[in-house]
């Protein structure tokens, strides 16, 4: 079961940075972070923080998709957003399992994850300006956001695949490869989203409706 928003109650863990305070019992020791990539010859701290950031991005994308599905009046778009909500949530579950397998707390929220979450959430705030646009424009904006978040997720999966290719053979590398495979399972989803966005916008521009 994926955790779409990390809190202390759900096992949130972190490491302090310049301005952040982490309760001592929730702090992940640097040694544990470094150890996560050791077997595979990776910089464990960078690896752990990256995995955490990628997971946080998927969480934000899943929450956005749920909200977009809730807000749309268009049944086809609702289905699309719901499908992406499920896909992003599945990715979160896969990534949390990977983190667990490499010795990291699955809800580790790294400093990089905080920033990634902030960036992704910032992209999802179009509904705050719903009064400035007609509903159709807002639907377009939500499709834009969905596409941006999904493209970003796909780029993250490619990145993980490259890291797996560079890593030393080890249990960590195997886990990473398995995770990449699972994350790449529905490679056509992104293309379907691109198509849907194009169809929607083409219909709006050429026929005045979607």
């Amino acid at each position: 079961m994926a955790t779409l928003i990390v809190t202390k109650d759900k096992g949130g863990a972190g490491r302090p940075a310049l301005m952040t305070v982490i309760p001592p019992e929730r702090e992940v020791p640097l040694a544990a972070l470094r150890a996560s990539g050791e077997q595979a010859g990776l910089d464990g701290l960078a690896f752990a923080d990256l995995l955490s950031a990628i997971t946080m991005h998927e969480r934000a994308a899943a929450r956005f998709a749920l909200a977009a599905a809730e807000q749309t009046e268009n049944p086809a778009l609702r289905q699309l957003h719901q499908a992406f909500a499920r896909a992003h949530a599945d990715h979160v579950a896969t990534l949390e399992s990977l983190m667990d397998a490499v010795g990291l707390p699955p809800r580790y929220a790294s400093p990089a994850a905080r920033l990634t979450g902030y960036l992704a959430e910032s992209a999802t705030r179009a509904p705050l300006l719903a009064g400035s646009v007609d509903p159709r424009t807002l639907e377009c904006a939500n499709l834009d956001v969905a596409l941006s978040l999904a493209e970003w997720c796909a780029a993250d999966v490619r990145l993980l695949a490259k890291i797996a290719a560079e890593a030393r053979p080890s249990k960590v590398t195997t886990e990473l490869r398995d995770a990449v495979e699972a994350l790449s399972a529905d490679a056509g989803a992104l293309e379907r989203l691109r198509d849907m966005r194009e169809q929607f916008l083409v219909a709006v521009v050429t026929r005045g409706g979607a």
Binding site: V6, T7, K8, G14, P16, V21, P23, R26, R107
Partner: peptide, 11 residues
Amino acid sequence: RRHFDRHTVDP
């Protein structure tokens, strides 16, 4: 001052 982190803060 520094701030709490929403992912780990005690309610």
